[in-house]
Design a protein around this nucleic acid. Structure first.
Lengths: 196, 196
DNA sequence: CTAACAATTAATAGTTACTAATAATAGGTA
DNA sequence: TACCTATTATTAGTAACTATTAATTGTTAG
């Protein structure tokens, strides 16, 4: 009896694991997998309080419908869209701001989204395998609200060896909302060798 | 017959719409909604090649299981996890870096993720309704690679009226990878009145 | 006017994946 | 031996279907 009990507990633990990994498993399939009768599987599910397959699927489906809205932006949506670029010289990128970029109540776009736009653009225009931001000076001039479209212009102001000074200006409706000066270092595929 | 045909086409169009908006609608519920028999709804579905409710739910569930992996980070993952905070004074946040935060080949974390961590933390510790970053000076000291866990510490270094100077230090394995000085302005719910 | 046709509804049998309840069986234990 | 646990089987009932055949209603063309 002790031995059987152990087997039972172990089986239930594994059933739970299996279902967690694949909620689409029916009792029949589980019964085949574990070589026990469907009834035993059902009893196990009941004892563990695991709902039937159809309800599990519905749960997954509903979660993801919701998650879709909550979950945040794709990379492109964070860093904006490159619309013009002259490697080593200048570039322009656009970012349409959306609600999920804001502070909850105010509707003001969080500063790091604007930085992401500026920084990504600055790095994009560097003509090298790898470009890393070293130093940055940022100035947020006026708040940006949801729905506003941001236009970022970046220009290489100076270059000394592998050190670039890039200035970025972000405007919304021809009004400057942000400026930044970034020092960016370029490398040609040697940095990545560093230990992880 | 022409009139019925129109009705039929129109009904099918609407059924399609309803199902698209809510894949959890059974034939029975649709029948009640449209005041037609279940059989009619079934015929409509067949003619339009729309699968039964259970299969639609499975499809949604599977899509989302996949999307879960592909779709990018939750907001929390971008800004890290707040683990300690003393309002108006200091705070600590942690960010586990993952592959999707890197430049494709190098495995180096993109700078704006580190800024996001620092900036969000700095704003979090300001004791006010609304806090906006005004000026920032950032220094990226050594590259961060996927998998490294970042610990950010922020401290209010100075306060003059609604103007805060916050310094943030980000470390990985006790090694400083980033420092930043942020000037943040606090407001008490008057900024949000600005026109959108 | 009626046969034909479309649209709709009804009826029937079968499927999957269950719930819920009861009963039967095997094996160990006190 | 009587009891208990674990397992399996059986039966009745459910939701949400598929697939098929048949009946009903209304219109319309010849």
């Amino acid at each position: 009896m002790m031995i059987q009990n152990l087997n039972k507990i172990e089986r239930q633990r594994r059933i739970k694991e299996y279902i967690l990994r694949d909620p689409f498993l029916s009792d029949k399939k589980l019964a085949e997998l574990f070589n026990f009768s469907v009834q035993t599987i059902r009893l196990d599910r009941l004892e563990m309080g695991i709902p039937e397959m159809r309800k599990r699927i519905i749960k997954v489906a509903k979660e993801t419908s919701l998650a879709d809205q909550v979950k945040s932006l794709k990379r492109d949506e964070i860093i904006g869209e490159l619309i013009d670029i002259e490697l080593g010289k200048s570039g322009i990128a656009i970012l349409k701001t959306v609600k999920s970029m804001t502070f909850n109540r105010t509707g003001i776009i969080r500063s790091h989204y604007i930085f992401s736009l500026a920084d990504s653009l600055a790095i994009s225009i560097i003509d090298a395998e790898v470009a890393l931001t070293g130093i940055a000076r940022l100035r947020y001039k006026i708040p940006v609200y949801t729905g506003q479209t941001l236009v970022a212009k970046a220009r290489v102001a100076q270059k000394k060896g592998n050190k670039y000074l890039v200035s970025v200006h972000v405007k919304s409706n021809h009004e400057e909302v942000f400026t930044g000066k970034l020092v960016i270092f370029s490398f040609n595929d040697n940095v990545k060798k560093k230990e992880v």
